[in-house]
C-alpha cells in the first residue's frame, strides 16, 4: 500500500495505482479531468494532458518535487507522494492552456452537434477554460465518414484521444482496422469500414468517444439529449451482459447506450444487437431512472442554465471566475 496526499487529503491505495485513480477514491471536485484515459482500455491515457498535476514531493524516499507536471492518469503513486491539483495555480493555468489547445481546431458548433449536453469537451472547456480564443487561423475540417450504416465518424470534432482505437483493438477485436493515419494535426482515425461493422461490439466506440466525433446514426439528430430521459434496463442477451441505459422521449426509446459511471466510463460493454436493434420497451426489463452525475447538463434537463458542480467552481482560479463573470457562458440551443 502507498499513502499519498492529494490536495491536502490523505489517501491510501494499493501500490501501482495511478495518481488519478487515487484521486478518484477521494472523489469530488479535486478529481482531475480526464479526456483520454479510460479505465477498461489498456494503454489509454497520457495523451490529452487534461489531467496534468504537480508532484510536490515524489515519495518519502525521494521527497524532491518532480521537475515537470505529470499526467496523473498514467503516473503511479509512490508512498509519501504529495500531489497538487486544484491547489496549484500552475496546474490550473496549464489546464486552461490545454483547453485552449483542444479548442483551436475544434468547430465549436455545439448547437448542431449531437454530443452537446453529454460532451466531455464541452464540460471540460466550461469548467476549466476561458471563453475567448486567441486563434485566428482557419480551423481544420474533415468530411464525415460512415463506418457502416450505424456509426458515423466526424473527424472535425475528434480530439485524438485514441479511445476508439483501443476499443476497436481490444473490445471489437478489429485487428487494427481502427488505427490512426497521418501525423500531428493531420492525423485521423483511419478505418477499413467493412471490417469493423461486422463485429458485434463495434458500437462501443460511440460510448467511449468523449466528443461528437463518433455518433450513433440511428439516433443522430432525433433529439437533444437533455430532452431525453435515461432509464437503466437489462435483458437476457446471449452476446453481452445486457445491462444498458435506455434514452426515452415520451414512450419511445430513442437510443440505447452502455451504462456510464460518474467519470463517463462504461464498465460493461454492450453488443450491437442491444444497442441498435432493441428499441422497444418490451425488449427490456426496466430498473429505474439512471442517475447522471457530474456537471452534465443532462441532469438539469435544461440547456440554457448549465448546472455546474459548485465545488468545482469554487476551486477555479480567480482569473477564470472573472472571465466567467465577464463573459457568461454562451446560451446555446
Amino acid at each position: 500500500m502507498a499513502k499519498i496526499t492529494f490536495d491536502g487529503i490523505e489517501v491510501e491505495v494499493p501500490d501501482g495505482t495511478t495518481i488519478l485513480n487515487a484521486a478518484r477514491q477521494i472523489g469530488g471536485s479535486i478529481v482531475p479531468p480526464a479526456m483520454c484515459y479510460y479505465t477498461p482500455l489498456k494503454g489509454s491515457g497520457g495523451k490529452c494532458r487534461a489531467c496534468l498535476v504537480r508532484v510536490a514531493a515524489g515519495s518519502t524516499k525521494d521527497p524532491r518535487p518532480m521537475p515537470k507536471l505529470v499526467a496523473s492518469c498514467v503516473t503511479p503513486v509512490q508512498d509519501g507522494m504529495v500531489v497538487e491539483n486544484t491547489t496549484s495555480e500552475q496546474v490550473l493555468d496549464v489546464r486552461k492552456g490545454i483547453v485552449e489547445m483542444l479548442l483551436i481546431n475544434h468547430p465549436l458548433d455545439c448547437p448542431v452537434c449531437d454530443q452537446a449536453g453529454e460532451c466531455d469537451l464541452q464540460n471540460f472547456a466550461f469548467e476549466h477554460g476561458v471563453s475567448t480564443t486567441r486563434y485566428q487561423e482557419e480551423r481544420r475540417t474533415f468530411e464525415k465518414i460512415d463506418i457502416g450504416p450505424l456509426i458515423q465518424l466526424h473527424m472535425t470534432r475528434c480530439i485524438l484521444c485514441y479511445r476508439c482505437v483501443y476499443t476497436a483493438d481490444q473490445i471489437a477485436k478489429g485487428d487494427r482496422v481502427h488505427g490512426v493515419l497521418g501525423r500531428g494535426d493531420a492525423a485521423e482515425i483511419g478505418t477499413y469500414i467493412e471490417n469493423i461493422i461486422d463485429n458485434d461490439f463495434s458500437g462501443n466506440v460511440i460510448d467511449v468517444c468523449p466528443v461528437g466525433a463518433l455518433t450513433d446514426k440511428t439516433f443522430r439528430f432525433k433529439q437533444r439529449v437533455w430532452f431525453t430521459k435515461p432509464v437503466n434496463a437489462h435483458r437476457d442477451c446471449p452476446k453481452c451482459a445486457g445491462n444498458v441505459t435506455l434514452w426515452y422521449k415520451g414512450q419511445d426509446v430513442l437510443r440505447v447506450t452502455g451504462r456510464k459511471d460518474q467519470y463517463g466510463e462504461v464498465k460493461e460493454w454492450i453488443c450491437n444487437e442491444c444497442r441498435f436493434d432493441k428499441k422497444e420497451t418490451a425488449d427490456w426489463t426496466i430498473e429505474g431512472p439512471a442517475h447522471i452525475d457530474r456537471s452534465s447538463v443532462i441532469s438539469a434537463n435544461h440547456y440554457e442554465l448549465p448546472v455546474l458542480n459548485q465545488s468545482v467552481i469554487a476551486d477555479l482560479p480567480e482569473s477564470t471566475q472573472r472571465d466567467l463573470e465577464k463573459n457568461p457562458p454562451l446560451k446555446l440551443g
Partner: peptide
C-alpha cells in the same frame, strides 16, 4: 516541427501548428 509532431498529445499536436501559422503570418 509542425510536420513531424506525432499528434498524440494535445499541446504539441495543436501548438506546433499554431506556432507555424502565426510565424507564417
Amino acid at each position: 516541427y509542425h510536420h513531424e509532431s506525432c499528434g498524440q498529445c494535445s499541446p504539441c499536436r495543436e501548438g506546433t501548428g499554431w506556432l507555424e501559422k502565426v510565424l507564417h503570418r
